[in-house]
Design a protein around this nucleic acid. Structure first.
Lengths: 187, 187
DNA sequence: GTCTATAGCTAGATAGAC
DNA sequence: GTCTATCTAGCTATAGAC
């Protein structure tokens, strides 16, 4: 089980980079093959259902990552302020200071949703429930915490779009800072 | 100059609907032809540079719309509160209560930006300057007004993405309401 | 498991009749 | 200005050698 030219994790990581950069429709098999270092037919050996399966397994990997580094981290037991700092720091890294798109946003298109809607919803839901938990731990009511969590997801996605559109990733960094500031302990 | 099966405005409107729904890469000429009611070759007669020119003229039309209905409206002389109400009402209509994507967001992808970056930037800049003006008229400092305007654009774009992703357009409507509430007169 | 080669199709784009 | 017909290139996907 290990005559692989590249590990499945490496391959999926390469596919992720392509999909989040150019989207589902924009990604050609040639481009995906080039990115992974494998030939098209080798990709089909690993993903018999083709491009759709590639994106699907990429999304599953992303969901695992979110479960561990967002949902899991935010549901931890360390003090809320340090969980907040760590998560927002991870987020900045995840999106390369705003220079890299989010795979969820990139697949939130008609064809993407046609194929992967449940996976995309699951990922967003984990983000939401993670940040809701953080808000509660900061003393917010359930309702306020939920509302703030929604604002977090919205501003992350929106600031990534706008940063890209106006070619100024400071917009993303400013948005993250303002979100971080909105998690302050209520006495 | 009027042997047209459909007016150029009608055609561009149909193209807009396709592009904002499926994006630039996702839109095939067949699909664009079907949407307009013209054959592919007739589209090429009107847009000799093909799909790129179609999206380009769509974006120019959108920029005109934004100049009139956002930038222009917000720079009007009527009282700030009524301008605010009218603009946010227009926005809800523009995005069909959050059920329809924004063309700017849909083209904020690698291929879209490769081709149309200046037009996309111009449109975002008009949104920003319009809402900055509104904030100033509500008594905010230039700096606060600019920051709030940025938040408006971010939340519109982000809430459209998230609404689509979790299939709940109430998220968009809630975001718009909260933005509207943030424009209150400072005494 | 990876490769070369290629099938079958649809994409974007053009030629020329009306 | 719109149409039918067609070109070429690229697409997704498969067959079969190593």
């Amino acid at each position: 089980m290990a005559n692989l030219k590249y590990s499945q994790n490496e391959v999926i990581q390469s596919l992720l980079e392509v999909f989040r950069k150019v989207g589902y429709d924009g990604a050609s098999l040639q481009q995906l093959a080039n990115a992974t270092g494998l030939k098209k037919s080798s990709l089909y050996h690993r993903f018999p259902n083709g491009k759709k399966q590639m994106a699907e397994e990429v999304l599953k990997a992303v969901n695992d990552w979110v479960k561990e580094n967002i949902f899991g981290l935010l549901h931890g037991t360390s003090n809320p302020a340090s969980r907040r700092d760590q998560v927002f720091s991870n987020i900045i890294e995840l999106y390369a200071e705003g220079k890299t798109p989010c795979i969820l946003g990139s697949l939130c298109t008609e064809s993407g949703l046609d194929h992967f809607s449940p996976l995309i919803q699951d990922a967003f839901d984990d983000w939401l429930s993670g940040f809701t938990k953080l808000g509660i731990d900061f003393g917010l009511t359930d309702s306020d915490a939920k509302q703030l969590a929604e604002e977090v997801i919205i501003k992350i996605q929106g600031s990534l779009v706008v940063s890209r559109g106006v070619k100024n990733h400071q917009i993303f960094l400013r948005a993250i800072e303002s979100l971080k500031d909105s998690y302050k302990m209520k006495e």
